[in-house]
Simulated assay, not measured.
Amino acid sequence: MSLTFLEIKQKLANYCVYQDRCHHEVEKKMKEFLLIPEAKEEILLYLIQENFLDEERFTRSYIRGKFYIKHWGRIKIKAHLKQKDIQEKLISSCMDEIDPKDYEQQLLKFLEKLLPEVEDLLDYSKKNKAIRHLISKGYEYDEILNAIADYTEKSTD
């Protein structure tokens, strides 16, 4: 089945409407249609001009979703955005989508699950396992240590 240029353009617009997309995802999707470079450029320009494609909106939405829904840390979010060819400067400027208090609370929630009793903190391997888990979720080592200190402080009160 062969699609016309206008049909492809509409399909890509719908692709962007369904969910915020970045340039990288749209270009990847365009490969399915075997377009000539001029057609790709024209479609990209159209999507940007008509506000279907907005890199900053995508980045902010991605950060909010990955933190508030998937509970990823900043490091993991940043790494995944870099894989999507989002510029470092844009990523940094959009990280304010994560409220620092929410970030700290999320770390404490993880610790409550991972270290349910204060005595467990004396167990080096359990503490280490919790740290490794939080690092794999993309949280910063310093933030994890601060959260553990806060958690032990609250638990001993």
Rank of each mutant, 00 (worst) to 15 (best):
Y15W: 07
N51R: 14
H24L: 08
R21W: 02
D54T: 00
K28F: 15
L35Y: 00
Y15P: 00
Y46N: 08
E25H: 09
E50T: 08
C16W: 10
R57T: 05
D20V: 09
R21S: 05
A39G: 10
I43Y: 03
A39W: 05
V26Y: 01
E55L: 12
E41M: 14
Q49S: 11
E27F: 14
E56H: 05
H23V: 13
Q49W: 10
E55M: 13
K31Q: 14
C22Y: 02
K40V: 12
N51G: 05
H23F: 15
R64W: 09
N14M: 12
F33D: 01
N14R: 07
C16P: 00
N14D: 15
E25V: 07
S61N: 11
I63H: 04
G65H: 10
Q49P: 02
Q19R: 07
C22K: 03
V26S: 05
C22D: 04
K29T: 04
Q19A: 10
R64L: 04
L45K: 14
F58T: 00
Y62L: 04
S61W: 00
E38R: 06
L53E: 03
K31N: 07
E50K: 11
A13L: 08
Q49A: 14
E25Y: 11
H24S: 13
L53G: 07
D54R: 01
R21L: 06
Y15S: 00
G65A: 07
R64T: 01
Q49R: 12
M30P: 05
L45N: 15
S61F: 02
L44S: 11
L53A: 04
K40R: 13
L53C: 07
A13D: 00
Y18Q: 06
R64I: 03
A13W: 09
D54P: 03
E25T: 02
G65D: 12
Y15A: 02
E55Q: 14
L45C: 15
K31I: 10
A13F: 06
R57Y: 03
N51M: 03
E32L: 14
D54M: 02
K40D: 09
K40H: 06
E56I: 09
I48S: 08
H23N: 12
K29F: 10
P37W: 03
R21P: 01
D20K: 07
K28D: 12
R57F: 13
E50P: 04
Q19S: 08
Y46S: 02
P37C: 07
R57M: 09
K40T: 06
M30A: 02
M30F: 06
E56F: 04
E56D: 14
Y46F: 15
L45Y: 15
C16D: 08
I36F: 11
E55F: 14
I63P: 00
K29W: 09
M30H: 00
